[in-house]
Design a binder for these strands. Sequence first.
DNA 1: CTTTTGCTCCCCCTACGGGGGGAGGAAGAA
DNA 2: TTCTTCCTCCCCCCGTAGGGGGAGCAAAAG
Lengths: 217, 217
Amino acid sequence: MTIRVLIVDDHEVVRQGLRFVLEQEEGIEVAGESGDGAAALHAVRGLRPDVVLLDLVMPVMDGLAVLERLRGQAERPAVIVLTSFQEEDRVVEAVRLGALSYLSKTTAVDRVVAAVRAAARGGSVLEPGIAALLLGQVRQGGRPRPLDLLTPRERQVLSALARGRSNSEIARDLRMGRETVKTHVSSILAKLGVADRTQAAIFALQQGLVPLDEALG
Amino acid sequence: MTIRVLIVDDHEVVRQGLRFVLEQEEGIEVAGESGDGAAALHAVRGLRPDVVLLDLVMPVMDGLAVLERLRGQAERPAVIVLTSFQEEDRVVEAVRLGALSYLSKTTAVDRVVAAVRAAARGGSVLEPGIAALLLGQVRQGGRPRPLDLLTPRERQVLSALARGRSNSEIARDLRMGRETVKTHVSSILAKLGVADRTQAAIFALQQGLVPLDEALG
DNA sequence: CTTTTGCTCCCCCTACGGGGGGAGGAAGAA
DNA sequence: TTCTTCCTCCCCCCGTAGGGGGAGCAAAAG
């Protein structure tokens, strides 16, 4: 009984590399390839693979969206997330959405093969660093998204901050004292776990609190 | 007369993929692989390849450093830069240092093959987006985009700034004094016409100097 | 009712950020 | 050659930013 694998990555060279590696293996068969998330969902329905090797960073529909759509489906395949750089928050998110393994593309190919075989029987292969990270996260219960921790007023301040406004300007905009703005900013920094206002602004933009193209007046 | 290619990339799957693709081709031979810049330089001397496929982002010694060392050598190979994401400043820098082609890993594999064949006879294959960017750099048609006003070093600083790094961190990252960073930041603010570092970061993210999802580590 | 949460503002204090100016060296252009 | 650009680092100066507290007050939650 061969393990049928679907490879999802927007880089063709990566797909070719994985295909090449996997086809060397006994009992593993590459059922297909997809270049983006939408195509991947279609391929999953059509090909019914046992294992999906899924890249997180992709155009059109990224890996997390694919995982979300896959979750709750009846015969869903085992998913191994395979990404270029370890992005902490995404790791946790991906595992929460049902990814079995999380490998960096810098890992040796035999680990990829091992992960595929493990995934086919429902097991996980995690890199040491990733495993430690997950343990730390799980211990704190799920993860409330940082933006939800903010009070309404703080979100307003963060929003102005992400538009590049200074504390004094924010004070005028929102009709409050400069000191009050500072208080809000401090608690924002603490709640988001960032070091300064620039990082807070970047975070807000990433979260879509403010559309990037509206950020500067 | 076969074209002998050296593959340089820190990701083993990428190396495997490229090797697989290139070895399918008539008249192209993979002479070797290297996982970092230092090894690549050694391999160039030992193997004397005709073409080097070079990844820019690597540990130990990155692609730009390799290009720099290669420049001015007698029988230097043709270099094709192949990287995951288009980083504007690096593109220009790489071409200036003698790279013949600059391809994104998202390109179809036949373009990689075409680039290798072109490079072997001294030609270039550029992606449309990259080509447009270079044209904008070389001949200043249209209004000069503010980013083009920045010196290479300033772009590096802005890039770090847009990742949320502080002046001291940037100093460590780019190996210079904190005072020097401040000098660069000041001229960046002046050239971009913004008030502070947060606005500069937002601007850089809008311009795509740093992909939004890579901005915070 | 009390307690908690959120908003407001105050203080002190340190450090980082940014303006302004100066200056040396390396590299390239005129 | 000289001139210019760029990178490097220095100084002083001061405003802002951010940490750490404290505190009053209203609304909601217990």
